[in-house]
């Protein structure tokens, strides 16, 4: 049996007196690929930020590798987070600064290096390995701001992977990309998951579109108004009544090349 990676129990997040996330029990095992879906405002990003400790729960506990995050000092929490590769939404990073692509990827190594130390030759070999692996070799010295949206997303993935993370948390990694780039990025995520050392990387991916969840995604958490409406294998969640309830429309699922696409149709007014 795989070990527990994340464990949420009786966890609530409140904002201005309103409960925006209410999770009775959620256990995520090491090596799982989890898709988090739900309508706007369902609490997907909040759940992801809660898991990486960016926001504190108003109630309940979050355990990372069987360690209660609330009981840890800020310093120990930071050390634990070194194992999290996090890609936020585009609004949360400053893409206008003149960082080169290599500098951005190198930021992944910063997480694993102690304070007062410098990146050494081994670190840069690791950084260059991920730049090459993601096909960004020719862009290495180009500034991040001059890359296309897809290339920027690839660079952020290379940054996260250069950290050698145990958990990869991706918040809408394909938003604002065209069809081709969306599939390229999800194919890369799928490949990274498959080829991760010993298959022990855990992936949590927030996505609006179910078709973007790779074929290896083996579990979907469907959220509605901060609560888990369904939590099962994709085949069951995407064909359940819960998904129609979550999105408030009729939904049909078709499978093409292992990916499960949902087609939505508005309920008729009559």
């Amino acid at each position: 049996m795989k070990g527990s990676c994340l464990n949420l129990s009786g966890t609530q997040v409140k904002r201005s007196g309103r409960t925006i996330l209410d999770i009775d029990n959620l256990r995520i095992s090491s090596g799982e690929f989890i898709g988090i879906i739900g309508a706007n405002g369902a609490g997907k990003t909040t759940l992801l930020k809660l898991c990486c400790g960016l926001i504190k729960p108003s109630r309940g506990t979050i355990e990372f590798d069987n360690t209660d995050l609330a009981a840890m000092s800020i310093w120990s929490k930071s050390n634990l987070r070194k194992r999290i590769g996090y890609i936020p939404q585009a609004t949360e990073y400053n893409s206008e600064l003149p960082f080169t692509l290599r500098e951005v990827v190198a930021m992944g190594r910063t997480s694993v290096k102690p304070l007062l130390s410098r990146l050494n030759r081994d670190d840069y070999e690791h950084i260059d390995y991920w730049i090459d692996k993601l096909g960004l070799t020719s862009r290495r010295n180009q500034t991040f701001r001059t890359l296309s949206g897809g290339e920027q997303q690839k660079a952020l993935l290379a940054r996260a992977m250069s950290q050698t993370p145990a958990v990869l948390m991706l918040d809408e990694p394909c938003s604002n990309l065209d069809f081709n780039w969306k599939y390229q990025i999800t194919d890369i995520i799928d490949e990274l998951y498959q080829s991760a050392t010993g298959g022990h990387i855990t992936v949590l991916m927030v996505s609006h579109e179910t078709g973007l969840l790779p074929a290896n995604c083996n579990r979907i958490i469907l959220l509605r108004e901060g609560r888990i409406l369904a939590d099962d294998v994709p085949e069951k969640v995407l064909k359940s009544d819960a998904i129609e309830e979550a999105y408030q429309c009729r939904i049909e699922t078709v499978e093409i090349d292992g990916r499960k696409y949902t087609i939505s149709k508005r309920y008729s007014n009559s």
Binding site: I84, E92, Y93, F99, M107
Partner: peptide
């Protein structure tokens, strides 16, 4: 190296264990 991550994104710095607050 820490200041570069802070410049790029404080969220990334905080989520990935850079001692951002300090």
């Amino acid at each position: 190296k820490e200041m570069k991550v802070l410049l790029f994104s404080r969220s990334i710095a905080a989520a990935t264990g850079v001692h951002e607050s300090f």
